[in-house]
């Protein structure tokens, strides 16, 4: 009973703060509304016994939203919400598509004959996850690792202000680099 109450409070909170992300007047407030939505949505995971994944989502989202708040204040107009802010296009069309998606998928959720529960959770679900990632699901772990590494490299390359062509010019054998401050080994 208590679990059901917590679930519905968290579900309502997650959706309400999710809506608030696109309704508040300040970018910083939108970021923290999104953080609240993530924390509300991660609490049901804890109710299901997924303590590791639930805490992981909460901790990761706190870090992510703090980083996002910095970007918000750095890049976006009106970070403090001192004036009304509305940056939308095709609001009606988007709303219609979103409501339509909710109605169709919601009807599917209620009408589909979902399979019966097979088996019971293991005693230590986190151990089972770790064992799967290091054993039968090793490929998933490899792909995740490679993907994260590729993301680090690509993000640095994209965000760097002076790329390869700024430093060496169009000629692939162009040396030395045209840097404002010379340095490095033998440059």
């Amino acid at each position: 009973m208590a679990e059901a109450v917590i679930f519905w409070v968290c579900a309502a909170g997650a959706v309400a703060t999710g809506v608030a992300v696109f309704r508040v007047d300040s970018m910083a407030r939108a970021t923290f509304a999104l953080l609240a939505s993530f924390v509300f949505a991660a609490t049901p995971l804890l109710l299901l016994g997924l303590s590791y994944l639930g805490v992981l989502v909460i901790l990761m989202m706190i870090m992510e939203m703090v980083v996002m708040a910095i970007f918000m204040i750095m890049l976006m107009m009106n970070p403090a919400g001192l004036m009304p802010m509305s940056m939308v296009h095709n609001r009606r069309g988007s709303l219609a598509i979103a409501v339509g998606t909710f109605v169709v998928l919601g009807a599917g959720v209620l009408l589909v004959d979902w399979p019966q529960r097979a088996g019971t959770p293991p005693e230590d679900v986190t151990f089972a996850l770790g064992e799967a990632l290091m054993g039968s699901h090793m490929l998933v772990m490899l792909v995740i690792g490679l993907g994260l590494f590729a993301t680090i490299v690509s993000a640095v390359v994209l965000a760097h202000p002076r790329g390869r062509y700024d430093r060496f010019g169009d000629d692939l054998r162009g040396r030395p680099a045209d840097d404002p401050i010379r340095g490095g080994v033998g440059r």
Binding site: A14, V15, V21, F22, S37, I97, A98, F102
Partner: peptide, 11 residues
């Protein structure tokens, strides 16, 4: 809950 979050995010 998942469908509601998906719809809000889609909007």
């Amino acid at each position: 809950l998942a469908v509601a979050l998906l719809a809000v995010g889609l909007y």
